[in-house]
Write a protein that binds this DNA or RNA. Structure first.
Lengths: 204, 204
DNA sequence: CGTATGCTCAAACGATCGTTTGATTTCACT
DNA sequence: AGTGAAATCAAACGATCGTTTGAGCATACG
């Protein structure tokens, strides 16, 4: 049970990278196990099936992403002096941090792929593990934007989600310049995203 | 069904629908040819290969989308009274129209999938067939937003692209209500997108 | 020491993939 | 009608897919 944890982790890490690069169907278990340096049968032994492996890849990162986002939201929600930018920061910064530390640099790209694939079971899984977080943030946005109808608010949050997914998954054309440090670039990215989203949410 | 259409056209239409639903790798030629009501070998006979079929699916819609966008841009570009919303409308409305007439309702979803897949050859193909359009729109945005640095402008256009791709490919949660007509819903969608994008592009 | 248990491994399973083949049908033109 | 190119067809090709199998290896415990 001790050496299996190492094998499981290596499979999860290799799967995350390969799913980001080739997609869920495009990445084969043979490529995956070769990259992880484990036997082909190890995936079905430890995870049961490829579909289950996909879910475990999401679970590992989503759990920490959700926890960080909710913790950040808790510190600002409900307080009278909280701004729209504060709530957006609570949503965006944990995702950017995940993209740069903890080895989860490719997870946001995997997440964006999951959005693009319209597989129903995967969407249901994401909704189950993601829904309550979005609901809490939506409630806080509604509190800070009382002039918007519910429909108008949903529209804007939806568009903000698209922009953030696009940017955080690295679709974008913006690349870090060599004379800008990693930390600085992340800070600039967060600032751009937050100001853009705030403008899109609160415009008259 | 549409037995009057040529075999090539029926393959293209079935491929567009199946690529949108299952992805480029997930849609097999056997599913595709069965849906089109043609023989399996017809794809390789008329298109040479599956990869070439993918490109032809893009070509058929991108050609008319590019033409409509550039025609709409030409009517407003360079004129002193042109607003940001005018340029955004020239970019957005042709895509929404394509989503609702001409049988291209699923193409924007295919396009969004292509963004999510990081396949280099496909991205190069899209850049070759799409790049000059984006460049002309970017130039017009730069004229209307002289206060922005080039880097700042690129950032905002990138984020707007993400929001529009997300919305136009039907990722979003917003569905047309049964008491709203198709035309009305499309008009509301365009209005939302344009106002949101204008706010994101021009905020201080 | 013997053995039970968790894990790894090479090999094979049936299914499905994109593609090719060669025969057959369709059809415009002399 | 006769002919030849274009199109369609059933069938098969080799490759690769996810998954299963059963033997072999490791380590912990009586």
């Amino acid at each position: 049970m001790n050496s299996s944890a190492s094998t499981k982790e290596r499979i999860l890490t290799a799967a995350e990278a390969l799913f980001a690069q080739r997609g869920f169907e495009g990445a084969s278990l043979r490529q995956l196990t070769a990259a992880a340096g484990v036997n082909l049968a190890a995936v079905n032994y430890h995870f049961g099936s490829k579909d289950n492996l996909v879910e475990e890849v999401f679970k590992r990162r989503l759990d920490q992403l959700n926890a960080r986002r909710l913790a950040a939201l808790k510190q600002v929600s409900g307080q009278p002096e909280t701004t729209l930018e504060d709530v957006l920061a609570a949503f965006i910064r944990p995702a950017l941090d995940l993209s740069h530390d903890g080895g989860g640099g490719l997870f946001m790209r995997v997440l964006a792929r999951a959005f693009a694939e319209h597989d129903d079971s995967l969407r249901k899984f994401l909704s189950d593990n993601y829904g309550h977080v979005m609901r809490q943030f939506t409630a806080e946005f509604a509190r800070l934007l009382p002039q918007l109808t519910k429909e108008e608010l949903y529209w804007r949050i939806d568009l903000v989600t698209g922009a953030l997914t696009h940017a955080m998954s690295g679709f974008g054309i913006i690349q870090r310049k060599s004379d800008v440090s990693e930390v600085t670039h992340r800070e600039q990215t967060a600032a751009h995203l937050i100001r853009f989203a705030a403008a899109g949410l609160s415009h008259p």
